[in-house]
Amino acid sequence: MSPLLQNSLIVTLILGFALMEYTSRRYRTKVAANASANDTKLELLMFLSLVAIAQPVALLGSNALCTWLMPAQRGAWEGLPWWAAVGVFLVADDMTQYWWHRISHTPLLWPLHRAHHSAKYMSIRVTYRNNFFYYLLMPGLWMAGVLIFLGLGKVYTGYIVVKIAVILGAHCAWAWDEPLYRIKALQPIMWVVERTISTPATHWAHHALTNDDGVGHYKGNFGNLLFFWDVLFGSAHITRRYPAAVGLHDDRLFGDEHWADQMFYPLAQSTREHSALRPGARQYEPPAGAGASQA
């Protein structure tokens, strides 16, 4: 797949999911009704910084390191069958992202991922809403650069389109899986699908405000392309239901963090009470039963 075709497909996916959010009226009732100017700045600037800075630095940086450390290996895996190359990407990129995501819910790395959970809505807008350094340090991006150096670049162009389609769909305000669960003939197929890839039902549960309703599961459902990693590593929670609310409990109590603090921590730090965006600050611990989605 050529880079032009790849980028055209990615733009088409973004526009397609955006259209479904709009025509289903989910954008107006769920997103626009809850999003602030602070949210818009964070999401727009993070997307631009990912595309223009973090991803190129990781891919080009890994290429430069490989050229320096193992120049003779350039293109060494070019003859690998496509299905084997996809398998390599699933492990080196998607599985490592699962673990990166999972450890980002620990106190040490939570400040780099917190922005992704501070949105009070689900939407394709949220897909790349994270701290700038979250992506710059993501192992999967650097591993993808190594695999491209080894000759798997053509497979990567197709692989990344499929991955983006799944993760956009998992965040989309229009829950594409919801009507499919109601079709009896599709029940066996959906049983396989929801254990294979991330879906709105499983991923929205990860963004839930609370676990108290039995739907939310912010301590699991970490998968990006493959939900199978959650099944394999014991962090899966499947209900075929959707949380009533998403976001962070401390934001509702103390107000939203400024977009710059969320995006550039630790270079920018919060002055808010009970903030995780200050070195050494104690993270807010809600009272029992409050069900806050804290790391």
Rank of each mutant, 00 (worst) to 15 (best):
S123Q: 09
S123T: 03
I124V: 15
R125K: 12
R125W: 15
V126S: 03
V126H: 02
V126A: 02
T127H: 01
T127F: 00
T127R: 01
T127K: 00
N130E: 11
N130Q: 13
N131P: 05
N131K: 07
N131F: 04
F132E: 02
Y135D: 04
L136N: 02
L137Q: 00
L137G: 00
L137K: 00
M138H: 10
P139H: 07
G140V: 06
G140E: 05
G140P: 04
G140M: 06
G140C: 05
G140S: 06
L141I: 09
L141S: 13
A144G: 02
G145M: 05
G145A: 03
L147E: 03
I148K: 10
F149E: 04
F149W: 11
F149N: 02
L150E: 04
L150D: 04
G151C: 06
L152H: 10
L152Q: 06
G153S: 01
K154I: 11
K154R: 11
V155E: 10
Y156R: 01
T157V: 08
T157C: 08
T157E: 04
Y159H: 08
Y159C: 10
Y159R: 08
Y159S: 03
I160R: 07
I160L: 09
V161T: 13
V161I: 12
K163Y: 08
K163V: 05
I164G: 02
I164K: 03
A165Q: 14
I167W: 00
G169A: 09
G169R: 05
A170D: 07
A170I: 07
H171K: 04
H171I: 08
H171C: 06
C172S: 14
A173G: 13
A175V: 00
A175S: 09
A175T: 07
D177N: 11
E178A: 14
P179I: 00
L180R: 12
Y181L: 09
R182T: 13
R182A: 15
R182W: 12
I183F: 14
I183A: 13
I183V: 15
